[in-house]
Design a protein around this nucleic acid. Structure first.
Lengths: 204, 204
DNA sequence: GTCTATAGCGGGATAGAC
DNA sequence: GTCTATCCCGCTATAGAC
C-alpha cells in the first residue's frame, strides 16, 4: 500500500463512519482502525478531525446537489416543473440512501454549517426563483389556482419528497417493509405526489 | 432547596440540555452544573446518564403523543379524518417546537430506541388502522378515488405535517422568516394541505 | 511518510467521609 | 442526602524517533 492508498483509505473510512454515526460519535481512532493505518497518520494528512469532517461534508453535499440538478426552465409550465422536480429528487434520494439523513442530521444539529456554506445553496435559490416565476405566470394565465404564497407549494414538494428518506427507519418499521420494497414504494409514490400537487393546482 | 427540589432541578436541566444538544453532546457535568447540584448527585438519583436519558426521552415522547391524540373515528369520512389529523398534528408541533426534532434526531440515530419502546407506538398503530379503514370504506362507496396503497396517503399526511418542523432552521433560512412568521405560515398551510389531500382524493 | 509514546483534557462513575 | 476526591477510561493532538 503506497501513500496515496493510505490517504484514500482514511478518507473512505472517515466518510463511511461519519455517514453511519455522525461527527460526535465517530472517533479518530475508529477511522484509523477501519482504514488500517496508524492513528497519527490521520492528523498528519488532514490536520484535525474537524478539517477532515468539513472536507467530507462539503463533498457529500455537492454529490447530492449534483444528483438533483435538472433542467428547470422558465418556459416549462409549473406542472411540468413539479413533475420534473418530484422525479429527480426521488431518484437522487434513492441513489444516495444514507447521505440524505446524514446531511440532514448534521445541518439541523449545527445550523452554522449552513452559514459557512451558504454558497452551496446558490443553486437551490435560483431553482426556487424560477419555480416561483413559473407558478406566478401560470396563475396569471388562469391555468392554475391562485396561491397566496407560492413558496408553500415548494415546501410541500420538498416535504413529500424528502421526509420518507430521512425517516426511513421509522417508515420501514411502521409499514413493515424492507429496503427493496421501500424503494419500490417510493418510485410508485412519485406519480401519486405529482398527481396530488397537479390536481390541487388545476382544480378550482 | 430540599431534596425534592434538587432531584427536580436535575431532571429539568437534563431535559433542557438533552433537547438542546442531544444525548452525545450533553455531559453529566453539564447537567449538574446547570442544576447547580453536586456532580455525584446525578448518579445518586438516576443511576447513570443513560437511565436518566431514557426516563426523559419516554416522557417527552408521551407528551408529544398526548398532544396528538384526537377523536379519530371509524364513523368519520376519510376526508374528515384527514382534516382532523392535519389540524391536530400541526398544532401539537407548534406547541412543542423543540421536542419534535429532538425525538426525531434520537430515533433516527438510535433506531433501537424504537424497538424497546414499541409499546409507545401502539396508539399510532391503532390510528393507522382506523384511518385505512375509513379510506377503504370511502373507496368502496365511490366517494374517493381508488388508491392502491392507502398507507401512502398516511405517509403523505405525516410528511407534509412533520417535515417543516424538523427542518425548521433550514426552512426559516430559505424563506427568510423568523419564528413568529414561521408559526403563522404553518397555521395558514393547514388549510392548503387539507385541501390538497382532499382534492386529490375526491377528484377522479 | 510512518511509527511509538504520551501529553493533556474531559468524560462517566463511585468510594467513602460527613 | 450530600459532598470531595479520585479512578479509569477514551478522546484529540503532537513530539520525536526512524
Amino acid at each position: 500500500m503506497d501513500k496515496r492508498d493510505k490517504k484514500e483509505a482514511i478518507l473512505n473510512s472517515a466518510r463511511a463512519l461519519f455517514i453511519e454515526n455522525g461527527y460526535q460519535s465517530t472517533s479518530v481512532r475508529d477511522i484509523a482502525k477501519k482504514a488500517d493505518v496508524n492513528l497519527a497518520l490521520v492528523n498528519y494528512y488532514f490536520s484535525s478531525k474537524e478539517d477532515l469532517f468539513d472536507l467530507i461534508f462539503d463533498n457529500i453535499v455537492l454529490q447530492i446537489l449534483n444528483g438533483m440538478k435538472f433542467e428547470i426552465s422558465a418556459e416549462n409550465s409549473a406542472c411540468e416543473n413539479i413533475e420534473h422536480a418530484v422525479n429527480t429528487y426521488t431518484e437522487a434520494l434513492i441513489k444516495n440512501p444514507e447521505l440524505t439523513s446524514f446531511i440532514f442530521q448534521e445541518i439541523i444539529k449545527h445550523s452554522e454549517l449552513l452559514n459557512s456554506r451558504i454558497a452551496t445553496l446558490q443553486h437551490t435559490n435560483n431553482f426556487i426563483k424560477v419555480f416561483i416565476n413559473s407558478l406566478n405566470r401560470d396563475i396569471e394565465k388562469g391555468i392554475i389556482r391562485k396561491i397566496d404564497n407560492p413558496e408553500i407549494i415548494i415546501l410541500n414538494i420538498v416535504s413529500l419528497c424528502v421526509f420518507p428518506f430521512i425517516s426511513k427507519p421509522l417508515v420501514k418499521k411502521v409499514m413493515n417493509i424492507d429496503d427493496k420494497i421501500f424503494v419500490k414504494e417510493m418510485r410508485d409514490r412519485k406519480k401519486i405526489i405529482s398527481d396530488m400537487l397537479k390536481t390541487y393546482l388545476t382544480t378550482f
